[in-house]
Design a protein around this nucleic acid. Structure first.
Lengths: 120, 120
DNA sequence: GATAAATAGTATGTAATAGAAACCAAGTGT
DNA sequence: ACACTTGGTTTCTATTACATACTATTTATC
């Protein structure tokens, strides 16, 4: 966690470019806990509040980075599945850590926000 | 990691609202590994590429959530320090997990991006 | 077999946000 | 006195997000 080398800085920067936005992590959360492949509209419903345009942009971005895979479903011509790749599966650990933090400390954050209003 | 209850959904959502943007995590990374308080312009230099406006917005947001604390430095009238709070320190673990993932898998992501171009 | 609804998107216009640049007031260094 | 640093705010513009509408194909219903 020292960020000594050029390589490490480049690495964390590139990863944050992929994940540090409003939707990427929420999309991964939509797959948990089972991580089975999901179709476009089901994904849209699970994420909630995301528009089709933004979802398809995000899916393409995550596909380009090798974290998700787009597959046309066999049999049904009109049907596309998005599956988490093996690389994408390894993200479960850090996202899970964030998730656990959220469960443990959400109340503290909410309390801080509430008390900030009463101050000045 | 199951997102069964309403509370858990609310928790992860609120936490992502604080952290899932371009700058929040980068600001925390600027504190590591020592986590000593940093002044405004030093923070700006360490984060790199962030404008003053966005930095002050982010700092206020993180202060409201109780993750950072703003202090006018004693002695010098023109001097403000931003310190990580105890609550903010607990974020080190999940951010560190993300950091380790980045170091371990950045090459894979880059390779995927490179090969995606050559396909069509 | 016509009608309606779902799937997997794209196109378009608007609203919100990010970012660059200038500005400012106070303090410090030379 | 003059330039420079600090910690911002203001203003303007460019980018991005989002809602809405639209499409083409397919499945389900009457």
């Amino acid at each position: 966690m020292t960020a000594d080398t050029e390589d490490e800085l480049w690495a964390i920067d590139m990863v944050l470019n992929q994940l540090a936005d409003k939707w990427a992590i929420r999309i991964f959360c939509a797959y948990y806990p089972d991580m089975t492949p999901i179709r476009f509209n089901e994904l849209k419903r699970r994420v909630g509040g995301i528009s089709q345009k933004i979802l398809s942009q995000q899916l393409r971005k995550l596909e380009r980075s090798g974290l998700l895979e787009r597959r046309v479903m066999p049999g049904r011509l009109l049907g596309v599945e998005y599956a988490i790749t093996p690389l994408g599966r390894t993200l479960h650990e850090p996202i899970s850590a964030l998730y656990k933090w959220a469960e443990a400390h959400a109340d503290d954050v909410r309390a801080a926000q509430a008390s900030f209003q009463t101050e000045t």
